[in-house]
Write a protein that binds this DNA or RNA. Structure first.
Lengths: 225, 225
DNA sequence: TCTCGCCTCCCCCAAAAGAGGGAGAAGCTC
DNA sequence: GAGCTTCTCCCTCTTTTGGGGGAGGCGAGA
């Protein structure tokens, strides 16, 4: 089974280069090329490629927006690899959020590009090493400071951590009281202790702390408030 | 300059295999081997390798704990790549949190292992494709629900987003006023608008929302409160 | 036993926050 | 110019929050 690839870049030479590299592989076929985001969307719909190599900077519609739209409209397992010359932070976030399976620099060795294409069709993801590093740091939470937060968490009693967790759920004192089956006065006491032990001023800072310390994580709150 | 490597695995054959693969490279030298976590710590201290290949499952002290201790005690730029046969979720989190620069499966092709070693000494990071994918998904935050939050964010004006961002920094109304060079009364107006537009009750929920929507991210707050 | 930390609850009080108005200035489009 | 949104600021009022105590019960450990 051959891997069908769509190459999207506004520079003709770059497109040809990538197409050349990929075309040399027996199991890879470049089925189409596009030079703008809008063209990419049309080509993706028409040719239903397995993998799209997408440049970011393009006229009409940039690669990130095109990525988001393509993945939003097609439910199939289309994989998109973002190509860029530099690696600015904000692009990465938007790209990964748009649903890209890869984010690599254009100066990647040809054999690595081929490997990246094969990797993403198999359901894996491929990032430039420097980007992987940044993602890890983000994930691990700046490492140094996070353990610092976690250390401060140790100073809390079990009940105080319960309260802090509820607090991080956006609950009011009364709601926390209900959730933990204790009185509202007790909740106030616990919160006062949490704030003074952690050196915080108010519940909003406590919520921030909970997220920064990793006690609460994005995705934890499915609530609809 | 040669890259000095320490190989840690409790199985003799595995160690020899990795050492063999790496030893064939002109610029890589395996300076030591260790079979337990404790041995690894001692060897790391003695030989000061550039890169450590670390197995997870080992007697005495597992590879994750050893990784954390080694990186905690040595301030140098020692890089650690975790090797594993499977890829269970909890390991990954602990490994990255311990400060590992890589997490790869043992069935990696020899040339990729060599590439991984070179990548991490250069400051990059290398993960198995499946793990990279999971990390991205985690980072992007379940995608579906997050875009829902992001949609709600669109209803805010630019100024209201500014205020929400400050809010997510744990600031009080007065501090937000100072930060944005506006009056305290104005801040209250903006916050009221934010709360009603997003269907939130108080600033604590607003902070939660900011994190869940990806407006604020763990690591953003370097503040010491 | 006695002490100490933790959990529970109570009081009072002041500050902060949020709701509900109104209103003027600037910018925009029609 | 009229109509609209946004940003800015003001007012009053109620609710919530947080600080400062105190106090009883309970279990672990000296």
């Amino acid at each position: 089974m051959t891997i069908r690839v769509l190459v999207v870049d506004d520079q003709h030479l770059v497109r040809r280069g990538f197409a050349m590299v990929l075309g040399h592989e027996a199991d890879i076929e470049v089925v189409a090329e596009a030079s703008t985001g809008l063209e990419a969307i049309a080509a993706a719909r028409e040719h239903q490629p397995d993998v799209i190599l997408m440049d970011i900077r393009m006229p009409e519609l940039d690669g990130l927006e095109a990525t988001a739209r393509i993945l939003a409209q097609c439910d199939s397992a289309m994989r998109i690899i973002i190509l860029t010359t530099f690696d600015p932070d904000e692009y990465i976030y938007k790209a990964l959020h748009a649903g890209a399976s890869g984010f690599i620099l254009k100066d990647i060795p040809p054999e690595d590009l081929v490997a990246a294409v094969r990797t993403v069709v198999e359901g894996g993801a491929m990032l430039a090493p420097a980007i992987t590093r940044r993602l890890i740091q983000r994930f691990a939470g700046t490492l140094g400071s996070e353990s610092d937060y976690a250390q401060r968490l140790d100073r809390l009693t079990a009940r105080e951590r319960d309260v802090l967790l509820s607090l991080a759920g956006g609950k009011s004192n009364a709601e926390i009281a209900d959730a933990l089956f204790i009185g509202a006065a007790t909740v106030k006491t616990h919160i006062s202790n949490v704030l003074s032990k952690l050196g915080l001023r108010d519940r909003a800072q406590a919520v921030v702390f909970a997220y920064e310390a990793g006690l609460a994580k994005p995705g934890d709150q499915d609530i609809g408030f």
